[in-house]
Simulated scan of single mutants.
Amino acid sequence: MDTVEPSVTGTQSVFRALKILHAFTAARPTLTGPEVADLFGYSLPTAYRLLRALEAENFLVLDRSTRAYSPGPEILRLAGVMLHRDALVAQTQTSLVRLRALTGETVAVYWRLGNRCTCTQEMPSPQVTRAEAGIGADFPITRGAAGKALLLGLPESEVRALLREPDVPAPIGGADALLAELAVGRRRGYTVSGGETVAGSVSIAAPVPWVREGLAAYCVIAPESRFGPRERDAAARTLVEEMERLRSILQGHTPY
């Protein structure tokens, strides 16, 4: 969903700078001044003014040889604040270790950022042949098990409204097929998809129970060649059990 820039002059530059930070992704880790200008329709002087301000505050760093900007150390500092703020991230790390040991496959946590599903933590399978997305990888919320798990709490009317938004790709199979998948996922407590985000893989995902509904999900992903129906069912049971275990551990935690 696009951010509407406020008309108040004093905050317009702040929102423009934040839009630039949001534009960095795993697939686009650097941006130049002309690229920012083209991306947002800013004049070149405005793009450089915003980039230099972000650089001055260490939110961005500039590669002097390529003239390209990338995320800077201030973002790492803020991530550290989040890591030490409460037990949430520590618990997810412990939980991911446990889940990987039980399934033998790659496990990850995805968060909803706008209308996309972004991998924020991942522990690759110890097996030589494995499937993984990579931290920072993001996908449309309508694609893949993790994205669909984030939609399980939405009523049909809200899902259909989401599908009308211009930055949301049509689901594979159409809206009715997605709604049918979500109905099955609600009964099961998890979603399943094959090859929608990582080619040759099957993924299973469940919404995180202690975070605000629709904000985060756990995912198990494996090569399709060794993740048949029996393995999927076993992994799904393990995933749902782990979510319930986390719910009991974090009952006193204040959700986001």
Rank of each mutant, 00 (worst) to 15 (best):
T197N: 13
R28I: 11
V81R: 06
L113T: 14
R232C: 03
L179Y: 02
M123C: 10
I249H: 05
R130F: 09
Q12V: 10
K148G: 05
L151M: 04
E158P: 04
G114H: 11
P171Y: 05
H22I: 13
L60S: 08
G41C: 06
G195A: 07
R160I: 06
V14E: 10
S70F: 15
V192H: 11
T11V: 13
D86Q: 08
V36S: 07
D138I: 14
A217I: 09
L99E: 01
A68Y: 12
E158W: 02
L179M: 08
E196W: 01
M243R: 04
F59G: 08
G33P: 12
V14I: 13
V14T: 10
V220L: 02
Y218I: 01
P6R: 12
L50T: 05
A90C: 13
L162V: 03
R186Y: 00
L250V: 00
G80S: 13
S203Y: 03
E241I: 08
R187H: 08
A180C: 10
A235W: 02
L31W: 09
L154F: 08
L178Y: 04
S225K: 14
C119M: 02
I141C: 03
Q12R: 15
P229T: 12
A222R: 02
P73Q: 14
Y42Q: 07
L50V: 05
E241C: 14
G80T: 08
V89T: 10
T238K: 05
A133G: 07
D86R: 08
R85D: 15
V36A: 10
G80H: 09
Q127F: 12
L250Y: 00
V81A: 14
T106S: 05
M1K: 07
A133V: 03
G104D: 06
L76P: 13
Y110Q: 12
T120H: 12
R186N: 01
L151E: 00
G72P: 04
E74V: 06
R98S: 11
A68G: 04
A175P: 03
Y69D: 10
R237T: 14
